[in-house]
Design a binder for these strands. Structure first.
Lengths: 207, 207
DNA sequence: TAGATTGTTAATCGATTAACAATC
DNA sequence: TAGATTGTTAATCGATTAACAATC
């Protein structure tokens, strides 16, 4: 039974980690799995594993047995929305943006980037892995045409906020931001930041 | 006065965000800045801004005035270690790895990638932006020669753990992991994960 | 049965927010 | 002086961990 409980950000972040580990167990031919096993393999606590899995699983675990691996993988994939891809656009075809356009792996995570946008005339009109690159002036039109909800910002920092404003105006609902600046967006727009400078600061400080 | 207090991960992640905002203020000619201003601009609480800045600043703020912008930027850059670059190696020259090798911006964050490693003979021997790509068999040798402490993993998931083991054996102290799997490393090795699947799960769930 | 594992309820821990005296 | 802002101490909030009864 799926309980409608608020899932914290940290908890949400753990689910893909469970899934990748469970799939690696599946490849080894394992057919059932317990909280202690997962806790050991992923360096989580047993209690946390139980709570996390109970929160999203449609089946109950069995004492002395654990959970059926296949069912659990299905539940996780369903929960994470990996069975169908949400369409997304990408703004800023620099090194990182180009890598993302070339990368087909986002499809495994429920995201399909359908095209890129840039201001550089040398890039506009080209395609990368079959994905066209348009002028940023086309954003609103394309977003409306394809009913896009998600945008990825891989622009330089100094234009990220103006791109964010543009996306908000075009009706985008979620922004995956790779610029290392804070973005201000209107209420109702979700921003998820992947700030490499922040991540690096954590790593550096711990060393 | 810098107090020796434990800084949390979330707190550490905020410092680069402060710095980018402060620099944008500097570009506008602003010369002093207060907690309420920063809180407003970055969507943090005033109390949090005061605590964060007090924890790393060598100067005190002045009531009714705030802090000197230039001093604060200096303190932040010093704290974040942006004045000197730590050398790093990158393992896995796929789309993302290539983008990182091309990207010069990490130098602004105190990190200099000096070379890449891969298993693909078509890549080994080439250079990207002047950075050579070696066989992964060369890792231990290069790490020792250049006294490298930090490694970046941008390999496919299925080899990330073995690369991690290899790096640990070579004497690497910190790993910046972009594979979307959990890595087990010996004690004493710091791992900072940038898990795009996790980040995407958070974004998707909020939509 | 015995014991490993489950899910839940209570306790702990840590981070954020609120309150407030100090001060330029 | 008055008031905005500071830094610190106390209160709140949320997430993790511990405890424990239930059960296959």
């Amino acid at each position: 039974m799926i309980k409608e409980k608020l899932l914290s950000k940290k908890q949400l972040e753990r689910y893909p980690v469970y899934l990748s580990y469970l799939k690696s167990l599946q490849d080894k031919g394992v057919i059932n799995v317990s909280a202690p096993i997962l806790a050991e393999g992923l360096s989580f606590s047993e209690e946390q594993v139980r709570k996390d899995l109970a929160a999203i699983s449609s089946h109950s675990g069995k004492p002395k047995f654990g959970r059926n691996l296949k069912e659990l993988v299905c539940d996780l994939e369903a929960f994470l929305g990996y069975n169908e891809c949400a369409k997304a656009i990408l703004v800023g075809v620099g090194h990182l943006g180009e890598a993302f356009l070339k990368f087909s792996g986002f499809n495994d995570f429920g995201l399909e980037i359908i095209c890129g946008f840039d201001v550089d005339d040398n890039k506009i009109g080209n395609t990368i892995k079959g994905k066209p690159i348009y002028s940023i002036e086309q954003i609103a039109k394309i977003v409306k045409e394809h009913d896009i909800k998600i945008a990825i910002i891989t622009t330089p920092n100094n234009v990220a906020q103006s791109v964010c404003d543009l996306l908000a105006g075009a009706g985008i609902k979620g922004i995956w931001n790779f610029a290392t600046v804070h973005l201000n967006a209107p209420k109702g727009i979700v921003i998820e930041n992947v700030n490499l400078a922040s991540s690096l600061a954590v790593l550096s400080h711990k060393l």
